[in-house]
Simulated scan of single mutants.
Amino acid sequence: MLHAVIMAGGAGTRFWPASRAGRPKQLLDLTGDGTMIQATAARLSDLVDPSRILVVTSQRLVEPIQQQFPQLPAAAIVGEPCKRDTAPCIGLAALLVSRDDPEAIMVVMPSDHVISPEASFQSAVRYGAGLVAESENRIVTFGIQPKYAAETFGYIERGESLTSDSSAPPTFQVARFREKPKGDVAREYFESGNFYWNSGIFIWKAKTILEALKRHEPEMFAHLEAINADWGTPQQAETFQREFAAIQGKSIDYAVMEHHQDVAVIEAPFLWDDVGNWQSLERLNDADSDGNTVLANHLGIDTKDCIIKADGDHLIVTLGMSGTIVVHTEDATLVADKQREEDIREVVKKLQANGWDAHL
């Protein structure tokens, strides 16, 4: 059967001040369609029964996520005791899924992407699950056709075509996974037409990814097996804390994808946005006649090419501004040059250094 794993442990610091430690990006409503994680789960509604959805997050977010999904049993939301990247997260999820369904096929995805239309996504997942069912050792991922030479995404280089049905989306053997490139290399990838952005969405059999982790990351796998052995016993919490903290964190790309021999990439037949920063809102919402993206009660005078976001009815007035991000929350306001948006991470670090924990 098909099972879904939603990875929801990110911090989303580039969305400060809306994103906080107790309410990161995946718990924000940035599109008007509910929170990011709610939209992710809704996207799965016609694919996977709620009893086969597993959310893996951090311990501090278990309760807020449970409030988002009262229909899910408590056991369906797993809180990691510390951050260890995606490979341990995925490995643990595969072990837990395998306890009840050793032949499970898993679709694994982040909790904070915007994807549309849902029907195209669901059709693509069904197709990918079929490819996995055909070849037990196969791993399937989705590649996004690049729109520009991005330096913030990993890339997938495609190899020989695997498409045999003209009605199916283009599918290729993966030649190689590439790390986030520098500008000149990103331009080469983009201009070649032979590369996709790495969506971070995967389909595989649970036992396939577990065998791959055991082969390529035996120490990590041993810790995960120890956790699984005590799962559901009185020792669960203590073992989980001890063994998970002992794992050396690593992404699934480094741990498995760069080494696995049978990886197929499906050219995504859906629209995808990873909503990585405030400027993502410009792609997801219509701008006004002056190029402003406004999600607030706003009065703009001689204001162009700005992003304005506020909670509630708070009025934001901008006068003579251009290329600026203004975000207002109950206890903090950000005013930033759009060209300096990546430095919002530095703002968060500065707040931490100053001990202003109430604003984190």
Results as ranks from 00 to 15, higher is better:
residue 144 I to L: 10
residue 261 Q to M: 04
residue 57 T to I: 04
residue 245 A to N: 10
residue 53 I to D: 01
residue 51 S to C: 05
residue 283 R to D: 09
residue 254 Y to G: 00
residue 125 V to Y: 11
residue 167 S to G: 03
residue 79 G to I: 04
residue 306 C to V: 05
residue 61 L to N: 08
residue 271 L to N: 12
residue 285 N to A: 12
residue 219 E to G: 00
residue 340 R to K: 15
residue 199 S to Q: 10
residue 50 P to Y: 10
residue 247 I to A: 03
residue 46 D to V: 02
residue 69 F to N: 11
residue 93 A to K: 03
residue 136 E to N: 10
residue 101 D to I: 09
residue 188 E to F: 09
residue 302 D to L: 04
residue 71 Q to Y: 10
residue 310 A to H: 03
residue 200 G to V: 04
residue 56 V to F: 11
residue 111 S to L: 05
residue 97 V to H: 09
residue 204 W to G: 09
residue 192 S to V: 03
residue 280 S to G: 08
residue 358 A to K: 13
residue 277 N to D: 14
residue 302 D to F: 04
residue 71 Q to A: 12
residue 133 A to R: 15
residue 74 A to I: 06
residue 212 A to Y: 05
residue 201 I to V: 13
residue 185 V to Y: 00
residue 335 V to L: 11
residue 345 R to Y: 10
residue 25 K to G: 01
residue 80 E to T: 14
residue 122 Q to W: 05
residue 325 I to G: 13
residue 260 H to A: 10
residue 55 V to L: 08
residue 8 A to Q: 04
residue 242 R to Y: 02
residue 209 I to Y: 00
residue 117 P to W: 12
residue 80 E to W: 00
residue 299 L to P: 00
residue 89 C to W: 10
residue 336 A to I: 09
residue 4 A to L: 05
residue 27 L to K: 08
residue 326 V to N: 06
residue 69 F to L: 08
residue 10 G to D: 05
residue 11 A to T: 14
residue 164 S to N: 10
residue 259 H to K: 14
residue 205 K to P: 08
residue 211 E to G: 13
residue 93 A to L: 08
residue 317 V to Y: 13
residue 346 E to A: 15
residue 247 I to V: 09
residue 50 P to I: 12
residue 68 Q to Y: 02
residue 311 D to C: 07
residue 130 G to V: 09
residue 249 G to V: 02
residue 178 R to T: 09
residue 279 Q to M: 06
residue 255 A to H: 02
residue 314 H to S: 12
residue 338 K to G: 01
